[in-house]
């Protein structure tokens, strides 16, 4: 029996080996390159092969890095909050209200935004939110405003709106799956034991949906923090996030060691933040349904 298991295991490993090897290679190779670069010295236009911690010292001491990193974390946290808070009711509606036979159609509709490229969607938000965009010209022609609204373009608000829209399906799907897994008789039990619908939601539905919420938050938070396109287009380039700063170091200033150190530092910070978030929610993640 044991040998049978082993041979099955070998067979399984053999099957996944090619894609696994490919995935490790294309993920590990660039990561290792970046890591190696971050410990090297920058000569103007070249990289000097000499080990140093100077890049990290500079990064950690740089007030601009502090500001941009904090802004990136802040924007990503805000986007995550907005996305998850907006996605939850959608997922709840899908799971609890929509006729089971129509659920797949609804899921299909939710993925429609993916049919156009991310870049185009971001650009379209610019058209909607812009100085002479759909919202401003619409409100102006209706006589509701005289001057264009400025709080919706080239600032953090517009970035949050754009990113929250872009990541909505990523947040809806894991929450939907978590809600689908909840045994409906648990909700009846909550009511049966004397709780109103709202309290049953609070004491039963929400805790059981938390694994989905945590997954949604991470799926939104991690890529958002490194988003490059939205700050460049919607932020008008005036409010760079960490990805823009890395890009500037890497390409504009051609300081690859410094850019790499920035990237590694940002990655560490994101990893630590994510681990803290998971640790805070660990009691929800341990639940076996």
């Amino acid at each position: 029996m044991a040998s049978g298991n082993r041979s099955q295991k070998t067979q399984g490993l053999g099957l996944i080996a090619p894609p696994l090897g490919y995935a490790v290679l294309v993920m590990a190779a660039p990561l290792l390159t970046i890591l190696a670069y971050s410990f090297l010295k920058d000569g103007y236009l070249t990289v000097i092969r000499e080990f140093t911690f100077d890049n990290y010292r500079t990064v950690w001491g740089d007030p601009i890095f502090h500001k941009i990193m904090l802004r990136s974390l802040g924007v990503a946290a805000l986007v995550t909050l907005v996305t998850v808070v907006l996605a939850f009711p959608v997922a709840y509606f899908l799971s609890f209200v929509v006729d089971p036979r129509k659920k797949s159609m609804w899921l299909f509709l939710i993925t429609i935004p993916f049919w156009t490229s991310y870049l185009i969607r971001v650009f379209l938000w610019k058209v909607i939110l812009g100085y002479n965009g759909v919202i401003n010209s619409g409100l102006k022609s209706l006589g509701i405003i005289e001057q264009p609204l400025t709080f919706i373009l080239y600032n953090v608000n517009s970035m949050v709106i754009t990113l929250a829209h872009a990541y909505a399906p990523f947040a809806i799907l894991p929450i939907f799956i978590a809600l689908e897994k909840i045994d409906r008789s648990l909700l009846e039990a909550g009511r049966d034991l004397g709780e109103s619908r709202i309290m049953t939601f609070w004491r039963v539905t929400l805790p059981l949906a938390m694994p989905g919420v945590v997954a949604a938050a991470l799926i939104v938070f991690i890529p958002t923090i490194g988003d490059y396109v939205t700050p460049a287009l919607i932020g008008g380039g005036k409010i760079p996030m960490i990805a823009n700063m890395i890009q500037a170091q890497m390409l504009d200033l051609d300081n690859r060691p410094m850019g790499s150190a920035l990237a590694v530092t940002a990655m560490l910070i994101v990893a630590i933040m994510s681990l803290i978030f998971v640790a805070l929610n660990r009691r929800f993640l341990r639940v076996k349904q």
Partner: peptide, 28 residues
């Protein structure tokens, strides 16, 4: 249902998986 003087033992038992035994029993 939550105001009726009835309580139910469900077919699936409907034990709250995120709560301990004592928290389940004390839920109401």
């Amino acid at each position: 249902a939550n105001r009726r003087p009835t309580n139910m033992v469900f077919q699936s038992y409907a034990i709250f998986p995120h709560l301990t035994v004592a928290e389940n029993v004390g839920f109401g």
